[in-house]
């Protein structure tokens, strides 16, 4: 390896220990102050000044108190509400302090069992349209906090919600379509609905 370090003057071959440990310590502590305190505190200050609502978690107020976040799903379960996706968060569904997915593999019998149970629960809760069940409605999301369902999954629940609320199914479907957001480069097949916003719109109507 003698050719790796030729005899030029600048680099010293065997640095004294202090020549390494001292600059390393000083640089580490200095950059910890700058990047670990200065930077996040500066971003916090700017964020609270420029975008205070988002910086605090996009919280929604209902009758003067916090009732959720516009970005975080909730465990709706009444027949007269639109349901979100199954949630695999720690200890309880839609636990906002314990995000996570099921991590079940595609061939795991536990996945098929859970999906079959969810289909049964949907059938037990009220009338359903004919045809296959939208996949996102019976599979757990990645975060367990997914605020959306597909447009298909929302329309699939219209007969149940309409029956429970004694509403006209056609008008309810129209309300659902008004709430739909298109995905980039997408079509109706990839459109989605924010479940909390949909239920809020339902309560207002």
């Amino acid at each position: 390896m003698q050719h790796a370090l030729s005899g030029t003057a600048t680099p010293t071959a065997t640095p004294a220990a202090s020549a390494v440990w001292w600059p390393a310590t000083r640089l580490l502590l200095g950059l910890t102050l700058l990047l670990g305190l200065g930077y996040p505190l500066a971003v916090t200050g700017l964020a609270q000044w420029l975008f205070p609502a988002q910086a605090q978690g996009s919280l929604l107020q209902q009758q003067g108190r916090t009732a959720g976040s516009a970005l975080i799903g909730q465990a709706f379960s009444k027949p007269g509400e639109f349901w979100g996706r199954p949630s695999a968060t720690a200890s309880t569904p839609y636990n906002g302090a314990g995000s996570g997915g099921s991590n079940l593999g595609p061939a795991n019998p536990a996945l098929a069992k859970a999906v079959a149970e969810r289909i049964a629960a949907l059938k037990a809760a009220g009338p359903l349209p004919a045809g296959p069940v939208p996949a996102d409605l019976v599979t757990a999301s990645a975060s367990g906090l997914d605020p959306h369902i597909s447009l298909a999954a929302a329309l699939y629940q219209v007969p149940r919600v309409a029956a429970a609320r004694q509403l006209d199914a056609g008008k309810l479907a129209q309300l659902v379509r008004q709430q739909a957001e298109q995905a980039w480069f997408g079509s109706d097949a990839t459109a989605r609905v924010n479940v909390l916003q949909l239920n809020l719109a339902l309560a207002r109507s």
Partner: peptide
């Protein structure tokens, strides 16, 4: 394996994914 249970397989493998 899920399509066999009556799930719509045409929209893809949804377990562990986010709708947005």
């Amino acid at each position: 394996l899920l399509a066999a249970l009556g799930v719509d397989g045409s929209s893809g493998n949804w377990e562990g994914k986010e709708v947005r």
